[in-house]
Design a protein around this nucleic acid. Structure first.
Lengths: 121, 121
DNA sequence: TAAACTAGTTTCCAATTGGAAACTGATACC
DNA sequence: GGTATCAGTTTCCAATTGGAAACTAGTTTA
């Protein structure tokens, strides 16, 4: 008789695992955190602003990631009636609910660097 | 004259961006959160236990991800002197410092699901 | 008139990720 | 002797990710 899973078989646990999967799917890829972080700090920003601020990103990626996040209601896109037309992006109120996750991740990373530094000295 | 980045050019911001990058590099891939979450709940677990508990993972992946996390001191590997030999994995004290991130991510994901559910009803 | 800026899209390519299945080699159970 | 378990490793393959560069198309400035 084969052994069956035990730990991950409870309802609470499955819910948790699905929740983590959902969040990480939405924030997947190399750039989402960078873009979100930049937008959170910069407020309303245009496409070319983001292209300059988010270090190393290509236009294709920026475009794709913004569309992704727009679909998930994390980011808002508004076309300004200027000449030439400009497009403004900003983090939605809903997107702001990610701030705590991003903060925790940043805090952990900072402590991690400290640890590296201490070992090497 | 070309425009220069402004927002992401401050020291605080660069530190933050690097910190986020560090954390996400360490937790990259499809499985780290699952494995960590399972180990946090299950305590000491053997390779085959994890293979059963972490739904869908292949042995190759599990092996690789565990090695990865062992290198980063998130997980501890001990060979038991049994016959046949068994190997125990557990989250290190350091690995436990990731609990807050994982919690925040899980909480966000749960709220996200609630949102989807409300819209569809 | 040429160059630069607006916001992207398209194409082509290389690297990475990750899955399935087979394999190892020792031990233990029936 | 045959099968199953332990903890992996190896190989081969397909899909995804992401980068560079060229391109669109309209507007504006020198």
């Amino acid at each position: 008789m084969k052994k069956q899973p035990v730990v991950n078989n409870t309802n609470i646990c499955r819910t948790r695992i699905n929740a983590i999967k959902d969040t990480m799917d939405i924030l997947s890829g190399k750039w989402k955190f960078h873009i979100l972080g930049t937008l959170m700090q910069g407020g309303k920003m245009r496409f070319m602003d983001l292209l300059r601020e988010v270090d190393g990103i290509a236009a294709k990626m920026l475009s794709k990631e913004l569309q992704d996040m727009e679909m998930n209601k994390l980011v808002n896109r508004t076309i300004q009636n200027t000449k030439p037309i400009t497009v403004e992006y900003e983090v939605t109120e809903y997107g702001r609910t990610l701030e705590r996750i991003i903060d925790e991740i940043a805090i952990w990373g900072i402590e991690y660097r400290k640890g590296l530094y201490e070992k090497n000295s």
